[in-house]
Design a protein around this nucleic acid. Structure first.
Length: 159
DNA sequence: GCCAACGTTGGC
DNA sequence: GCCAACGTTGGC
Protein backbone atom coordinates (compact mmCIF):
# COMPACT_ATOMS: atom_id res chain seq x y z
CA UNK A 1 0.00 0.00 0.00
CA UNK A 2 1.68 3.16 -1.19
CA UNK A 3 1.43 6.56 0.45
CA UNK A 4 -1.08 8.89 -1.13
CA UNK A 5 0.46 11.59 -3.29
CA UNK A 6 -0.80 15.05 -4.11
CA UNK A 7 -0.51 17.27 -7.16
CA UNK A 8 -1.38 20.72 -8.39
CA UNK A 9 -2.70 20.77 -11.94
CA UNK A 10 -3.22 23.97 -13.88
CA UNK A 11 -5.96 24.59 -16.37
CA UNK A 12 -7.10 27.74 -18.09
CA UNK A 13 -10.76 28.20 -17.15
CA UNK A 14 -11.54 29.58 -20.61
CA UNK A 15 -10.40 26.26 -22.01
CA UNK A 16 -11.35 23.81 -19.27
CA UNK A 17 -12.55 24.98 -15.86
CA UNK A 18 -13.52 23.01 -12.77
CA UNK A 19 -17.14 23.60 -13.78
CA UNK A 20 -16.44 21.80 -17.03
CA UNK A 21 -15.04 18.90 -15.03
CA UNK A 22 -18.00 18.86 -12.66
CA UNK A 23 -20.48 18.70 -15.52
CA UNK A 24 -18.50 16.24 -17.65
CA UNK A 25 -19.69 12.69 -18.22
CA UNK A 26 -18.93 10.72 -15.01
CA UNK A 27 -17.33 13.98 -13.79
CA UNK A 28 -14.14 12.74 -15.46
CA UNK A 29 -11.84 14.01 -18.18
CA UNK A 30 -8.72 12.97 -20.05
CA UNK A 31 -6.01 15.45 -19.05
CA UNK A 32 -5.05 15.98 -22.66
CA UNK A 33 -2.66 18.37 -24.29
CA UNK A 34 0.28 18.28 -21.91
CA UNK A 35 3.39 18.79 -24.07
CA UNK A 36 6.07 19.20 -21.46
CA UNK A 37 8.35 16.32 -20.54
CA UNK A 38 8.47 16.94 -16.81
CA UNK A 39 4.69 17.08 -16.56
CA UNK A 40 4.40 14.03 -18.80
CA UNK A 41 6.80 12.09 -16.63
CA UNK A 42 4.77 12.84 -13.52
CA UNK A 43 1.66 11.48 -15.23
CA UNK A 44 3.36 8.51 -16.86
CA UNK A 45 5.74 7.44 -14.11
CA UNK A 46 4.68 8.74 -10.73
CA UNK A 47 0.95 9.32 -10.47
CA UNK A 48 -1.25 6.65 -8.92
CA UNK A 49 -4.99 6.18 -9.02
CA UNK A 50 -6.47 7.96 -6.02
CA UNK A 51 -3.82 10.68 -5.77
CA UNK A 52 -5.24 14.06 -4.76
CA UNK A 53 -5.29 17.00 -7.17
CA UNK A 54 -5.51 20.70 -6.39
CA UNK A 55 -7.33 22.20 -9.38
CA UNK A 56 -5.73 25.53 -10.30
CA UNK A 57 -7.09 28.14 -12.66
CA UNK A 58 -4.25 29.77 -14.59
CA UNK A 59 -4.60 32.76 -16.88
CA UNK A 60 -7.56 33.61 -14.70
CA UNK A 61 -8.52 36.64 -12.67
CA UNK A 62 -7.50 35.97 -10.03
CA UNK A 63 -5.30 32.92 -10.52
CA UNK A 64 -6.34 30.53 -7.74
CA UNK A 65 -7.03 27.00 -6.53
CA UNK A 66 -10.72 26.39 -7.01
CA UNK A 67 -11.23 22.86 -5.73
CA UNK A 68 -9.99 19.29 -5.87
CA UNK A 69 -10.01 16.26 -8.10
CA UNK A 70 -8.37 12.87 -8.07
CA UNK A 71 -6.33 10.75 -10.42
CA UNK A 72 -8.77 8.24 -11.89
CA UNK A 73 -6.66 6.06 -14.20
CA UNK A 74 -3.21 4.78 -14.94
CA UNK A 75 -1.48 6.74 -17.68
CA UNK A 76 -2.03 5.96 -21.34
CA UNK A 77 -1.14 7.65 -24.64
CA UNK A 78 -2.81 11.02 -25.25
CA UNK A 79 -4.97 10.38 -28.34
CA UNK A 80 -4.81 14.01 -29.46
CA UNK A 81 -1.16 13.60 -30.45
CA UNK A 82 -2.25 11.30 -33.31
CA UNK A 83 -5.01 13.56 -34.62
CA UNK A 84 -3.85 15.92 -37.39
CA UNK A 85 -6.88 18.11 -36.78
CA UNK A 86 -6.02 18.62 -33.12
CA UNK A 87 -4.07 21.59 -31.79
CA UNK A 88 -2.11 18.99 -29.84
CA UNK A 89 -1.11 16.93 -32.88
CA UNK A 90 2.53 15.83 -32.85
CA UNK A 91 3.86 14.60 -36.18
CA UNK A 92 6.93 13.17 -34.47
CA UNK A 93 4.90 10.82 -32.34
CA UNK A 94 3.46 7.50 -33.48
CA UNK A 95 1.03 4.94 -32.11
CA UNK A 96 3.90 2.43 -31.94
CA UNK A 97 6.04 4.82 -29.98
CA UNK A 98 3.83 7.44 -28.35
CA UNK A 99 5.52 10.49 -26.95
CA UNK A 100 2.74 11.98 -24.80
CA UNK A 101 0.78 10.39 -22.01
CA UNK A 102 -2.18 11.45 -19.91
CA UNK A 103 -4.29 10.31 -16.98
CA UNK A 104 -8.00 10.56 -16.30
CA UNK A 105 -8.95 13.14 -13.68
CA UNK A 106 -12.17 12.95 -11.68
CA UNK A 107 -13.98 15.81 -9.95
CA UNK A 108 -14.01 15.78 -6.15
CA UNK A 109 -15.15 19.15 -4.85
CA UNK A 110 -15.36 22.86 -5.44
CA UNK A 111 -14.05 24.87 -2.51
CA UNK A 112 -16.41 27.09 -0.51
CA UNK A 113 -13.82 29.81 -1.02
CA UNK A 114 -11.22 29.85 -3.74
CA UNK A 115 -7.62 30.00 -2.55
CA UNK A 116 -5.93 32.88 -4.26
CA UNK A 117 -2.43 32.59 -5.63
CA UNK A 118 -1.60 35.78 -3.76
CA UNK A 119 -2.69 34.23 -0.44
CA UNK A 120 -0.47 31.22 -1.11
CA UNK A 121 2.47 33.45 -1.97
CA UNK A 122 2.21 35.31 1.31
CA UNK A 123 1.74 32.21 3.45
CA UNK A 124 4.85 31.24 5.48
CA UNK A 125 4.71 27.61 4.37
CA UNK A 126 2.73 27.63 1.14
CA UNK A 127 5.00 30.24 -0.40
CA UNK A 128 7.49 27.39 -0.88
CA UNK A 129 5.15 25.31 -3.03
CA UNK A 130 6.80 23.98 -6.18
CA UNK A 131 4.44 26.01 -8.37
CA UNK A 132 6.29 29.16 -7.28
CA UNK A 133 9.69 27.71 -8.06
CA UNK A 134 8.75 26.22 -11.43
CA UNK A 135 6.41 28.88 -12.63
CA UNK A 136 5.63 27.47 -16.04
CA UNK A 137 5.21 23.82 -15.13
CA UNK A 138 1.55 22.85 -15.40
CA UNK A 139 1.74 19.84 -13.06
CA UNK A 140 3.65 20.10 -9.79
CA UNK A 141 3.92 17.88 -6.72
CA UNK A 142 2.25 19.01 -3.48
CA UNK A 143 3.14 17.83 0.03
CA UNK A 144 0.57 16.50 2.46
CA UNK A 145 1.10 19.53 4.66
CA UNK A 146 0.46 21.86 1.72
CA UNK A 147 -2.62 19.86 0.78
CA UNK A 148 -4.04 20.18 4.31
CA UNK A 149 -3.22 23.87 4.62
CA UNK A 150 -4.89 24.70 1.31
CA UNK A 151 -8.03 22.91 2.52
CA UNK A 152 -7.99 24.96 5.73
CA UNK A 153 -7.69 28.17 3.77
CA UNK A 154 -10.60 27.13 1.56
CA UNK A 155 -12.90 27.11 4.60
CA UNK A 156 -12.40 30.74 5.51
CA UNK A 157 -13.35 33.75 3.47
CA UNK A 158 -10.30 35.69 2.28
CA UNK A 159 -9.99 39.39 3.14
C1' DG B 1 -0.51 43.73 -24.10
C1' DC B 2 3.99 43.25 -21.95
C1' DC B 3 7.63 40.62 -20.74
C1' DA B 4 10.45 37.45 -17.60
C1' DA B 5 11.38 32.82 -17.14
C1' DC B 6 12.51 28.94 -19.18
C1' DG B 7 11.77 24.80 -22.25
C1' DT B 8 12.69 23.34 -27.07
C1' DT B 9 14.89 23.29 -31.52
C1' DG B 10 18.39 22.95 -34.69
C1' DG B 11 22.87 24.49 -36.71
C1' DC B 12 27.41 23.67 -36.04
C1' DG C 1 27.06 18.53 -26.84
C1' DC C 2 26.90 23.57 -26.93
C1' DC C 3 24.25 27.42 -27.23
C1' DA C 4 21.68 31.09 -29.79
C1' DA C 5 17.29 31.78 -31.44
C1' DC C 6 12.80 31.05 -30.84
C1' DG C 7 8.30 29.90 -28.81
C1' DT C 8 5.27 29.38 -24.84
C1' DT C 9 3.46 30.13 -20.26
C1' DG C 10 1.19 32.82 -17.33
C1' DG C 11 1.35 36.67 -13.90
C1' DC C 12 0.71 41.29 -13.92
Amino acid sequence: MSVKQYWLMKSEPDVFSIDHLQSAKDQKTMWEGVRNYTARNYMRDTMKVGDGVLFYHSNANPPCIVGTAEIASESYPDPTQFNPDSDYFDAKSSEDNPRWFLVDVKFKQKFNHIVNREVLQHHPILKDMVIFKLNRLSITPVTEQEWLLVHELSLTKPL
